[in-house]
Design a protein around this nucleic acid. Structure first.
Lengths: 117, 117
DNA sequence: CAGCATCCCGCTGGATACTG
DNA sequence: CAGTATCCAGCGGGATGCTG
């Protein structure tokens, strides 16, 4: 049993799922694996998700220590998001998802080519 | 670009997320990593999810070739669920989630012990 | 035992407009 | 630019009861 902020998890897998519990969050992590990004860049990176959702998910990820938020005192405002040290460790999870997706595509998909690494 | 059943994915990660897009499915895979199980066993394995959800998720996973369903012509009926070969490859994804959860717990959690492997 | 059918509620997340 | 505010629709998923 693991306890974090009065939430209880039966095992590490459940804990991980508690942190990146939806697609949009995983996508944000995925995007940030390419280096730190501005709010606008993240929004543009996936068209399927609205600005509001991005804002919200970024907040949750920050609260969970996955990403770090840096505000620059400039006009116009600039905010950079980057993965924290522990956030970077999610790379292995994403990598394994990539590998699985590749195998799956080979077996069941009509793949043109496999980019986006 | 990968195309499967007229659905398009930009990269293998997105494809993987398209298959195991929610927690309950990942949990089912997690449970089945322990060997084949009956419907009832899966339902009992996580109390937080209802029977209906289990039924539904099992169907989707079967449609996506992740699990295999075997019906035994017996009375009372018996149905066994097991991971398919490609489903077994999700083990690596789960494993990496386990590793991440462990690291995270060490850093931010009050862990009693870490079971459930 | 292994589901299916129904009803229903809550929350996620979309669209749009406004602010420091 | 980087958000906040509000309003609202959809659907995932809970509870319950029925069937082959």
């Amino acid at each position: 049993m693991i306890t974090i902020n009065e939430k209880e998890f039966h095992c590490p897998v459940e804990l991980t799922l508690g942190i990146i519990n939806d697609k949009s969050k995983i996508f944000i992590v995925y995007i940030l694996l390419g280096g730190q990004k501005r709010f606008k860049d993240i929004c543009e990176a996936f068209s399927q998700v609205t600005q509001k959702t991005v804002t919200q998910k970024l907040k949750e990820l920050e609260a969970d220590h996955i990403i770090e938020r840096t505000v620059f005192a400039e006009v116009p405002p600039r905010v950079e998001y980057a993965l924290s040290p522990i956030g970077l460790e999610l790379k292995k999870v994403l990598d394994s998802m990539y590998v699985f997706g590749e195998s799956y595509a080979v077996k069941y998909g009509a793949k043109d080519n496999i980019p986006c690494k």
